[in-house]
C-alpha cells in the first residue's frame, strides 16, 4: 500500500488489486471500450479538496496541491455516450447509484464519467473548451463524486468562524457570494465556494470539508468590493465572471464543524433583514432543497440514504431563513446579524 501511494505520487497508478471497485465496475458496464480498468495516464498532479486526495492527469490550478494516498483518480479515458439504464436523466447528465455520465461535447468539448466515488474519466471530444471543461469537472462532476461517496453536498458558500463553519445558501441571485465576501472581509476565511460538502464525524457531528481556494465572482460583485479584475482570470473568456484566488490565511484548508446554515432569500416584503430560525419539517424541507444542483426527490431515488443523512444534518444544525430586502442588500447589517446570531 505504501509503495502504491508513493508510486502514485510519481505518476504511477496503484495495482489493480488495490482498486477493486473500479475493476468491478468495468465488468458491470460490459463494454469492451471501458475495460481498461487501470488508467495508464501518469498522474502528474495531486490535489486536495473536500477532504479527498485527488490524483489528476489534468492540471487543475484552482485546487490546492498536496501529497498522500489517493482517494480519487482523474484521468483521460473512454466515457460512453450513454449509460445502460440510468434512473436519473437530465439534458447534460444521466446517472445511477454508482455511475454518473455527463455529456457536454458541444459546450465543454468532453464527456465525463464519474464512477463509484473513486474516479473521474474525461474523454475529450474537442480541444477548444478547457475552461469550461474544468468548470464542469470542478462543479457538476465533483458534486456527483460526493453524492456517490455518501457525502452531502450543499449548494452554498462556507466561511470558517471560531464557532464553526457557516454556510450561506440560497437560490440563484440570492447573493450567496456577496454576503460570504462581506463576512470574509471581516476576517473569516473562506472554507468552500458553491459546494459545501457535509461529512459526519463518528460522533455524528457534521463537518464542512474545505473546498477550493477561490471564489467565482461576477464583475458587478467585484466592483461592489473594489476588487480589481484586470489581472483575474475569467472563468470563461465569454463571461464577466472571474476566479478570485484566496491566498494563504484567506482560505481555511481544514474541515470545520458545521455551526449554522443561513438561507438567504431576497423578498420584497421586508425593509430590514429578518431572521427566522427553522425547526421541524420546515427545517428538513429547506435543507433538502439546498442539495447541490439536484432536486432532493430525484437525488433520493438514486442515493436512498440521503434521506437519513439530511435528517441527521437537520438534527445537528441551526438553520435560519434570512429574508433580505430585494431593493438594497444591507450587507453590513446582514453580516452584523449573522455575527450576533453566532454569538448566541
Amino acid at each position: 500500500m505504501l509503495l502504491g501511494q508513493r508510486l502514485s505520487q510519481f505518476g504511477w497508478h496503484t495495482t489493480q488489486s488495490e482498486r477493486p471497485l473500479a475493476t468491478r465496475s468495468e465488468g458491470a458496464q460490459g463494454q469492451l471500450s471501458h475495460r481498461r480498468a487501470i488508467p495508464i495516464a501518469p498522474y502528474t498532479f495531486t490535489y486536495k479538496a473536500f477532504g479527498l486526495t485527488l490524483s489528476s492527469a489534468l492540471a487543475l490550478p484552482e485546487l490546492l496541491p498536496t501529497t498522500g494516498a489517493t482517494d480519487v483518480h482523474i484521468y483521460e479515458g473512454a466515457a460512453p455516450p450513454a449509460l445502460d439504464s440510468p434512473n436519473l436523466r437530465k439534458i447534460f447528465y444521466q446517472a445511477n447509484k454508482n455511475r454518473w455520465l455527463m455529456t457536454a461535447e458541444h459546450i465543454a468539448g468532453a464527456r465525463f464519467l464519474v464512477r463509484e466515488g473513486r474516479e473521474i474519466v474525461v474523454e475529450r471530444t474537442s480541444a477548444d473548451h478547457d475552461d469550461v471543461l474544468r468548470l464542469f469537472l470542478l462543479g457538476s462532476c465533483m458534486g456527483a463524486l460526493l453524492f456517490q461517496r455518501g457525502t452531502v453536498p450543499l449548494h452554498g458558500t462556507a466561511v470558517a468562524t471560531k464557532r464553526g463553519a457557516v454556510v450561506i445558501a440560497g437560490g440563484i441571485g440570492a447573493g450567496k457570494s456577496t454576503l460570504a465576501l462581506t463576512l470574509h472581509q471581516r476576517g473569516y476565511p473562506i472554507l468552500a465556494d458553491d459546494i459545501s460538502a457535509v461529512n459526519r464525524r463518528t460522533d455524528g457531528t457534521p463537518v464542512i470539508e474545505s473546498g477550493f481556494p477561490r471564489l467565482k465572482l461576477w464583475a458587478d460583485t467585484c466592483r461592489r468590493f473594489a476588487i480589481e479584475t484586470d489581472d483575474l482570470p475569467r472563468i470563461r473568456p465569454e463571461l464577466e465572471k472571474f476566479h478570485y484566488p484566496l491566498k494563504k490565511g484567506a482560505f481555511c484548508a481544514e474541515p470545520q464543524p458545521l455551526r449554522a446554515v443561513y438561507l438567504l432569500s431576497p423578498t420584497g416584503s421586508v425593509t430590514r433583514p429578518a431572521f427566522e430560525p427553522l425547526t421541524g419539517v420546515a427545517k428538513m424541507k429547506e435543507l433538502q432543497a439546498q442539495l447541490y444542483k439536484i432536486p432532493f426527490r430525484e437525488a433520493r431515488q438514486t442515493w436512498p440514504r440521503l434521506f437519513a443523512d439530511v435528517g441527521a444534518l437537520a438534527r445537528h444544525t441551526r438553520v435560519c431563513l434570512v429574508e433580505r430586502p430585494k431593493n438594497g442588500f444591507l450587507l453590513n447589517e446582514l453580516a452584523d446579524l449573522i455575527e450576533q446570531d453566532l454569538a448566541q
Binding site: K90, I91, F92, Y93, A104, H106, I107, V132, L135, F136, G139, S140, G171, I172, G173, D194, I235, R236, E238, L239, K241, K293, I294, P295
Partner: peptide
C-alpha cells in the same frame, strides 16, 4: 427562469453563455 433551466439541464446555468442556454431551452 434559471432555476427551471437548471432543474432539467442539470448544470449551473451561470457557467453558460446566453447562446448556450438558448440551445438547451427547447429540450428543457
Amino acid at each position: 427562469s434559471h432555476s427551471l433551466f437548471e432543474r432539467y439541464a442539470g448544470v449551473e446555468s451561470s457557467d453558460l453563455t446566453a447562446d448556450e442556454i438558448d440551445t438547451c431551452r427547447p429540450e428543457v
